[in-house]
Design a protein around this nucleic acid. Structure first.
Lengths: 219, 219
DNA sequence: GCTCTTGTGTGACTTCATCACAGACTCACC
DNA sequence: GGTGAGTCTGTGATGAAGTCACACAAGAGC
């Protein structure tokens, strides 16, 4: 009881005590180091992932080998993909990579099923996660189809930096974020640099004028 | 019992008889004419849609007014979006348009919830729908990010035609299908025409060489 | 120092999107 | 039958983004 991780999920706090207990008893707690594959295509999930700490990047890899980042799962969230596959018996179509050390609660299929049947709150948690992911994917689609690369990149830089002064990222990584090409990102970053918005050195980007960058991001 | 529509859904057939009965009693049967808005952004769904007949096109509209088709829901399928929003209490982010006359079973929120609680089969139906839609969206994203317009258009023409000799569609409609621009589609269709793959007249496309078109579609 | 790997810069070229039109085909209406 | 409005299609010019090929620079390990 010293570490009742269910408290981290507002929806879980509302569960009846006996279900929370079942959850604590039945779920495994796992830790994954940074930069590890949490799940990958062609793999049947056996557990629902609830993230207690850390961040998982979910990305799609085309046959050509090119990648694009779809969304990120952060502490307090569950992985909608896993959930759907878990019950539908479908294979993954995307891969998840830990960006930090990740602590997760693994809920086995049977327990997941039990919770779904017995708890309104749990169902809301699961479906809310689905709705959010869908919305994330819609945003990706809209940006891909109609968005300019400049604003998209500016926005992504700010998102990734999370308020920090510097961002560690290669041009290739940023290209993958947006599903674009490395050269395109290089040229765009140079443009930002000439405008005095950022400074660059190998592998890092320093923000010089966050306000203007924000304006660019808003297109 | 003359029209036990639950038989149209393989997963529903496996329901315990009393639940199927609850479903037949509690669900409304509705008919929507062609080319009507079935659902739209900023609208809270009150019912889960199960399509008994017809086809609904789900598309996303950007603020700029440009649109892109996300996927289609056909007879025997349920609308994953509606489901997620229904339980998550989120607003729609996409709109659904009936492409044919549509017959649907409307399952009210309470009944939906009850079925989720009581039936494995129903849960599988719902989550399978989610998994499929996710996979559809991944395909859209992959094509947008990395696919060429030629193969994408060829493939879409074939998909829309469903084996028919002719396809009724304007260039603008096809552009919306792919999230592209009308002029781009016009030029691409002209290219297909010059290659002898199709013939065009106002609002319709005739297939002259489906084999070659299929090859183009496969890139 | 040197080599190897990884990251970045750059020019030429292709593809796609955008803008601004001009025709051409329907169809209703006179 | 003509006439005009609305819709659909064709086309050139231009710009934005992706692709290809290659050079060079920074750091890591020896």
């Amino acid at each position: 009881m010293a570490e009742d991780w269910t408290q981290q999920f507002p929806e879980l706090v509302r569960l009846p005590p006996e279900l929370r207990e079942a959850l604590r008893d039945g779920a495994h707690l796992a830790t994954v180091p940074s930069d590890h594959l949490v799940f990958s295509p062609g793999q049947r999930p056996e557990n629902l992932l609830l993230l207690r700490a850390g961040r998982v990047r979910v990305q799609h890899r085309a046959e050509s080998g090119r990648e694009i980042v779809l969304y990120r799962v952060t502490a307090g969230e569950s992985c909608a993909l896993t959930t759907a596959c878990l019950l539908a018996g479908e294979d993954y179509e995307a891969e998840g990579v830990s960006e930090t050390e990740v602590e997760a609660a693994l809920i086995p299929r049977a327990l997941f099923d039990q919770l779904l049947t017995q708890s309104d709150s749990f169902r809301r948690l699961v479906f809310a996660a689905h709705a959010h992911r869908m919305a994330d994917l819609f945003r990706v689609i809209e940006q891909l189809a109609f968005g300019r690369i400049g604003p998209r990149l500016a926005q992504r830089l700010l998102d990734l930096a999370q308020g920090a002064e510097e961002l560690q990222a290669t041009h290739q990584q940023l290209a993958t974020e947006l599903g674009s090409a490395r050269e395109v990102i290089s040229r765009q970053l140079q443009a930002f640099q000439k405008q005095g918005l950022i400074a660059q050195s190998r592998g890092t980007i320093r923000f010089l004028d966050i306000e203007s960058l924000t304006r660019v991001a808003q297109d």
